[in-house]
Amino acid sequence: MLTFRLALKNLLGAGMRTWLNVAVLSFAYVIIIFYNGLIDGWNEQARRDSIQWEYGQGQVWHQDYDPYDPFTLQDAHGKLPEKADTENLVPVLITQGSIYPQGRMLSIQIKGIPTDQSLLELPTAALDTSSNALPALIGKRMANAAKLKQGDQVLIRWRDKNGTYDAREILIAQIFDSNVPNIDNGQV
Rank of each mutant, 00 (worst) to 15 (best):
L2Y: 07
F4W: 10
A7Y: 10
L8E: 11
L8P: 01
L8T: 09
N10I: 12
L12E: 00
G15V: 09
M16A: 13
R17G: 14
T18E: 03
W19S: 06
W19Q: 02
W19R: 06
L20W: 07
L20P: 00
L20Y: 06
F27N: 09
A28G: 11
Y29D: 07
I31W: 08
I31M: 14
I31Y: 11
G37E: 10
G37T: 06
L38H: 13
G41C: 02
S50Y: 11
S50I: 04
Q52W: 05
Q52D: 15
Q52T: 08
Y55P: 01
G56Q: 02
Q57D: 13
Q57G: 15
Q57A: 10
V60I: 11
D64M: 02
Y65K: 04
P67H: 09
P67V: 04
T72H: 03
T72G: 06
T72E: 08
T72W: 00
T72K: 04
L73Y: 13
D75V: 12
H77C: 04
H77K: 09
G78A: 05
G78S: 05
L80R: 02
D85L: 03
L89P: 06
L89H: 12
V92N: 05
I94C: 04
T95D: 06
T95S: 10
S98F: 11
S98C: 04
I99K: 00
I99C: 06
I99Q: 01
G103D: 05
G103M: 06
R104L: 07
R104H: 10
S107R: 12
I108M: 13
I108F: 01
P114S: 00
T115R: 12
T115I: 06
T115H: 11
D116A: 13
Q117K: 07
L120V: 05
L120T: 05
L122Q: 02
T124V: 06
A125W: 04
A125M: 07
A125S: 15
L127I: 08
D128E: 15
S130W: 04
S130K: 13
N132V: 07
A133D: 04
L134I: 12
A136G: 09
L137G: 06
G139V: 07
R141Q: 14
R141K: 14
A145V: 07
A146I: 00
K147W: 08
Q150L: 04
D152W: 02
Q153K: 14
Q153N: 14
Q153L: 10
V154L: 05
L155Q: 13
R157Q: 12
W158I: 04
D160Q: 03
G163N: 03
D166A: 05
D166F: 01
R168A: 15
R168P: 00
E169W: 08
I170T: 03
A173Q: 05
I175E: 02
D177T: 14
D177G: 07
P181R: 12
N182V: 08
D184W: 09
D184P: 09
G186N: 14
Q187I: 15
